[in-house]
């Protein structure tokens, strides 16, 4: 048998080679930079090979960025997922959801920078939001919603909720409606149908949605600068990495912070997936087969 034929039997022929340019591109511009950054993080400007990491975990100004970021990212993700599930379960029942999904896709498309500029106007002390609160007597003085923790929080809801919702919707519409109808026919009320039929099928999908939304929220960057207190409660880890890279020109330290950022994200995602396999055993496909 010729070499060509034996390779072809393993699925390696001219067509398979078409994957090479794209794969090499990703290796060169994603895998290599990541490994380069990892190595670079162990070659600090001054000190031994662990000096960057030692510095990060000994200076409160640096290591508190992890808890500050988690303090924003986790509540926002929990809220977005908790709102998305009931809304997606409703939207699934309407005949033409395209108008609604189109409106919700707008903030994702516009991006965080524009949402930040909009919020500075709309939620500022003289913006329409506060004006409406005063007008309806819901508050006696304007509420401060920008340049603090809540500014970043709300901007992550505005861009994050549509993202979480659309992901959840794609899982929810994947569940066979016949299953729920069968439950209804047997007399189950909507809460029981949700608890015993839909939720078990949706857990894997919700978990993946949670992980993806969390990773997005954890990497919040422009809105933390524009809408938060970049020196105070919203000094998130991405700001620390950015400062090291582009203000202190310490590529080694910046890489170390990027690696820490990646490690925290991976740790949370792995912990969630591990918790799922411990607590929950069910169909892995979410009924989507």
């Amino acid at each position: 048998m010729s070499l060509r034929a034996s390779l072809a039997r393993q699925g390696l022929d001219g067509v398979t080679l078409l994957v090479l340019p794209a794969a090499l591109f990703i290796v060169a511009l994603f895998i290599y930079p990541f490994l380069y950054g990892l190595v670079l993080s162990f070659e600090p400007k001054v000190g031994g090979w662990l000096a960057n990491y030692a510095k990060f975990f000994s200076e409160p100004f640096l290591y508190t960025t992890i808890s500050k970021t988690l303090l924003i990212a986790i509540p926002v993700t929990v809220l977005n997922v908790a709102l998305s599930v009931p809304v997606a379960l409703r939207v699934r029942l309407i005949a033409k959801p395209k108008l609604l999904t189109t409106i919700l896709v707008i903030p994702i498309t516009l991006g965080t920078v524009l949402v930040a500029e909009g919020m500075l106007n709309y939620m500022g002390p003289r913006g329409w939001f506060n004006r409406a609160l005063l007008e309806f007597g819901l508050s006696s003085s304007p509420i401060r919603l920008i340049h603090n923790y809540w500014g970043v929080f709300l901007s992550l809801v505005i861009t994050g909720f549509p993202f979480t919702f659309l992901l959840t919707l794609s899982y929810v519409t994947g569940v066979d409606p016949g299953l729920e109808q069968a439950g209804a026919m047997l007399g189950a009320r909507s809460w029981d149908r949700f608890r015993t039929i839909l939720l078990p099928l949706l857990v894997p999908g919700i978990l993946i949605t949670f992980c993806l939304s969390f990773v997005q929220a954890f990497s919040v960057f422009p809105s933390a600068l524009l809408l938060g207190e970049p020196a105070g409660s919203t000094r998130v880890i991405s700001i620390a990495a950015y400062t090291a890279a582009f203000e202190e020109y310490d590529a080694s330290m910046a890489s170390a912070i990027a690696m820490i950022m990646a490690a925290v994200q991976v740790a949370i995602v792995v912990a969630l997936l591990a918790a799922q396999s411990l607590v929950y055993r069910g169909p892995a496909g979410g009924g989507k087969g």
Binding site: A23, F30, P33, V215, M261
Partner: peptide, 20 residues
Amino acid sequence: LFLLPMVVPPITFGIPLATV
């Protein structure tokens, strides 16, 4: 290999990438 760059947020791989 193709899934990773879509799941890892740009800010995480952006700094090493910009360095390179």
